[in-house]
Design a protein around this nucleic acid. Structure first.
Lengths: 196, 196
DNA sequence: CCGATTGTTTACTAGTCAGTAAAGAATCTA
DNA sequence: TAGATTCTTTACTGACTAGTAAACAATCGG
């Protein structure tokens, strides 16, 4: 009912998310979002609400879209699926260095606002829970396949910390060799879980 | 020569650092810093330069002061010194929950500005290098004491990622039990390095 | 075709932002 | 005491901030 919207809100939120991802929430102005989307501010506000709402939607887009794809590749995948994620993060640096240095929108937003914005906090809980579910599921598959023995939840927690640690190292300016060393160290830890 | 400064610049930078730590760089206004220090903005600018200079000095204060104290407790300390750091991070949550949830000023600043501000980037390199030095030194001591065997650098990298992963989890709003589980998982990984 | 509803456009606002100019005050060296 | 130097105080700036009011346009159901 009423006049139909002339622009694709999903496409717009991806462009919005990209700006937040690159600059961070506070350093992003509405003018930046107007430029990135080609939409006047009043259109953005009408479609998405406040600037903070736009961030929450950007995080939801990544959590439910691209990241969920990654989680599904890890679910039930055994040790190789976990190690593969770490390696692919390191390899992104060679394929798209600029993008790779931006780390992860969700992780960046959690560090910037996780302890002050309850709605960001909720998404932090969702993110950590989903990552742990994926790792736990992959580790349980590894147990069933006889790759490893016992203690799945502790190892899922370790993998979560390794993952977050990699993203922070990347954003803090670690160079290619340093990141490759981190990915190798993470892979070695995962390998060390194999039953011998 | 000239009129002596009436306030303690070291004390002021600690107060400045505290504001950056709690709110982040971009979310902090000069008015916030005036209130926290009790100094008019012109005095802050005269003493420290721009807002960014104030952040760099805040990071340097932590790197060369409180953090260096922690690094020195880890240097040459063996596996227990490494595990002790993780446990003390988890325990801070019970002693001072509000402060604990703020994570680490250096890590927070690296995630906010590490890929866009070269001067923050430099401090990221220094931070990662110093942490790795401390862990490497502790691990080499562990080798000498016969606690572990081989492969010190890979394990130092693992410990670095675990450390950063804990700080991010904390800032992203993980509750007490979740953080305790992370610290236990990190400790278990370190224990698993012991030669059997 | 009509009223209701929604989207778009333009212009605007009050407030806040980082940073500074300028004058007066206190201490230095000589 | 004199002049140079530095700090402190006050007031200010122009630019930018997030968010909105209101007129206009387009599409809806009936």
């Amino acid at each position: 009912m009423g006049r139909p919207r002339e622009f694709d809100t999903d496409a717009a939120i991806i462009q919005v998310a990209d700006v937040f991802w690159g600059a961070g929430f506070e350093a992003t102005s509405i003018a930046d979002l107007e430029e990135a989307t080609g939409l006047a501010r009043a259109r953005l506000y009408a479609a998405f609400g406040t600037k903070r709402d736009m961030l929450h939607r950007s995080m939801d887009y990544y959590l439910d879209g691209p990241l969920e794809m990654v989680f599904r590749r890890v679910d039930g995948g055994g040790l190789d699926a976990i190690a593969g994620w770490f390696q692919s993060i390191a390899q992104l640096r060679e394929r798209d260095p600029q993008r790779a240095m931006m780390g992860c929108l969700v992780v960046n937003s959690l560090v910037e606002l996780g302890d002050t914005d309850p709605r960001v906090n909720e998404r932090g809980d969702r993110y950590r829970a989903r990552v742990l579910t994926a790792f736990t599921s992959a580790l349980e598959a590894a147990v069933e396949q006889g790759e490893i023995e016992g203690d799945v939840s502790q190892r899922a927690n370790v993998a979560l910390m390794l993952l977050l640690g990699m993203f922070v190292s990347i954003k803090s300016g670690a160079d290619g060799p340093a990141i490759a060393a981190l990915a190798d160290a993470a892979t070695a830890t995962i390998d060390s879980w194999r039953a011998r």
